[in-house]
């Protein structure tokens, strides 16, 4: 049996591969506080969200978590569960974001939304499933601050990439 693939499938596969590569690269970077990561693969997700729509973005982000964890050997481990929750949460929030009437969010807004949701989801799972110690709650504000900073940073990167892709520097409208 031959699985029929479309151009769109190929595009998603390429982009997912890129996201996975960034994800793995990032996981080798040392982190001062556990849980704080720049989340650069977010850039790919947001670009896809803006240019190809939510469905494609969801595919890529879930594939990134699955394949990334298999390659890194963390599949079904706590890291994987946290990462999956983060990805699912950010996709849910991004979905709500794309439905915002009016001008809607730009890349920075999406990126911040995704980063905050990712962190909040991940933290909730960490707290309730793995380390239900009240001391962990003290870390939450720091983590959320980091999420905001990295969200804005990767949003600006996304904006720059999109402007580069468009070639004319105009802002990109939703879908």
């Amino acid at each position: 049996m031959i699985i029929q693939t479309t151009d769109n499938d190929h595009r998603i596969a390429w982009l997912a591969a890129l996201a996975i590569a960034i994800h793995i690269m990032e996981s080798s970077l040392p982190s001062p506080v556990p849980g704080i990561k720049p989340g650069l693969s977010n850039v790919i997700t947001i670009i896809v969200l803006i240019r190809l729509g939510w469905n494609a973005a969801a595919w890529i982000s879930i594939m990134r978590v699955l394949c990334g964890s298999i390659i890194l050997g963390t599949f079904l481990s706590p890291t994987f569960i946290m990462s999956l929750t983060g990805a699912v949460c950010s996709m849910i929030v991004l979905y709500a974001g794309t439905r915002l009437p009016g001008t809607g969010f730009g890349p920075v807004g999406y990126s911040v939304l995704a980063a905050l949701a990712h962190m909040a989801g991940q933290f909730t799972v960490a707290y309730y499933l793995f380390i239900p110690h009240p001391a962990l709650l003290h870390l939450f504000p720091v983590l959320i601050t980091a999420a905001l900073i990295f969200g804005v940073t990767s949003g600006i990167i996304t904006l720059a990439v999109i402007n580069g892709l468009n070639g004319d520097g105009n802002e990109c409208s939703t879908q």
Partner: peptide
């Protein structure tokens, strides 16, 4: 409500009420 607002008022401009509610 998110889903309903999204489908009914998709063309409405600057619906910050919705954002504010979240």
């Amino acid at each position: 409500r998110i889903i309903r607002v999204a489908s009914l008022h998709a063309d409405m401009k600057y619906n910050y009420c919705f954002l504010a509610q979240i």
